[in-house]
């Protein structure tokens, strides 16, 4: 980018020429144009994400002393986080629960998206909207609905009892990691259906015809054409679900029971009743790094896999 030189003798024509040059540079430089267009978002991102993150990061090196912070930088919080097995266990549990939830959601959503993409001919938009219907109610209400379904005297238990299949209510349904996975999988379904639907919808139908012409049956055709071409949607859906659910707090708090507590619940306790904000900050940073590592690895592996297929 060259700097615009303005003559010492400023005349109206000089000013105009400068303005023209700036305009030309603006129009000629795509990156600059892009950043200008992005600037409102960038400002929001900076204020809403970067600044709080900087605060969190700084705080994680402090120490809590009663109500005050000792601001001498120290790595104590991170040392404690690595040392005590509870944090590692909770982090692993968060990753396992959220991983199970991502897989379950994608598996359950794929057939729905597939049906709409290939078999629904009219009112596709209406179908999509109907599938997102559960999102129109509050998330808390949906959690409580699951509590009613999975509970001790809930729909499943009392139903099975009245049919005579079980004698005692199945207690593992509620207040367990299973309950958390079920609820999250239902709650995040729409986030999987939409990207998968889009990637299925984009598949060129003539490829499918070609495969059939060349002798593939429906199953072979699905695994050779449809599935690989819809991988971008599956990958997007998995990440969209994994990243937010790994930090979910309210679902395990209400449905998890003692064995279903996740990392976010511990972080919340640190900022709440335990009153150790720097420790909470260190745990948050640690969790962010772990999730980032997982997400990047997943993206890398899946890109390689897609290239292989391609």
């Amino acid at each position: 980018m060259s700097t615009t030189t303005v003559g010492t003798h400023v005349t109206p024509s000089n000013v105009n020429r400068t303005r023209d040059r700036i305009t030309a540079m603006f129009l000629g430089n795509e990156a600059l144009r892009g950043y200008t267009l992005l600037s409102p978002t960038l400002v929001v991102m900076a204020i809403g994400i970067l600044v709080p993150f900087a605060i969190l990061l700084t705080m994680s090196f402090w120490t809590q002393v009663a109500f005050e912070f000792d601001t001498t930088p120290s790595l104590n919080n991170y040392a404690k986080a690595l040392e005590h097995p509870v944090y590692e266990t909770l982090l692993w549990r968060s990753i396992m629960i959220s991983g199970a939830c991502s897989i379950a959601t994608v598996l359950l959503s794929y057939p729905m998206a597939y049906y709409v993409a290939f078999h629904v001919k009219r009112y596709k938009m209406l179908w999509i909207i109907l599938m997102t219907l559960p999102f129109w109610t509050s998330y808390l209400l949906r959690v409580f609905a699951w509590k009613v379904i999975l509970g001790f005297n809930g729909v499943i238990n009392s139903g099975l009892k009245s049919v005579g299949i079980i004698e005692q209510p199945m207690e593992f349904l509620l207040y367990s990691p299973t309950a958390v996975v079920i609820t999250l999988a239902h709650a995040w379904a729409a986030f999987a259906i939409l990207p998968i639907y889009v990637s299925l919808e984009k598949i060129d139908r003539s490829l499918l015809e070609a495969a059939t012409d060349l002798g593939d049956g429906p199953v072979a055709r699905f695994f050779r054409i449809t599935l690989p071409l819809s991988l971008p949607g599956i990958i997007a859906a998995t990440l969209i679900i994994f990243i937010p659910t790994v930090g979910d707090y309210v679902t395990p708090a209400l449905l998890g029971g003692p064995d279903g507590i996740m990392m976010a619940n511990m972080i919340q306790a640190m900022f709440g009743k335990v009153n150790d904000w720097p420790m909470g900050a260190a745990l948050s940073v640690g969790m962010m790094v772990t999730v980032a590592v997982f997400a990047i690895t997943f993206m890398f592996v899946s890109r390689k896999a897609t290239e292989q297929i391609g």
Partner: peptide, 20 residues
């Protein structure tokens, strides 16, 4: 009780609830 005790107690109790 003192604030230090409260923090210590709450932290320990959170860990116990999580199974440690």
């Amino acid at each position: 009780q003192t604030q230090e005790f409260e923090t210590k107690m709450n932290k320990e109790f959170e860990q116990i609830k999580a199974g440690f």
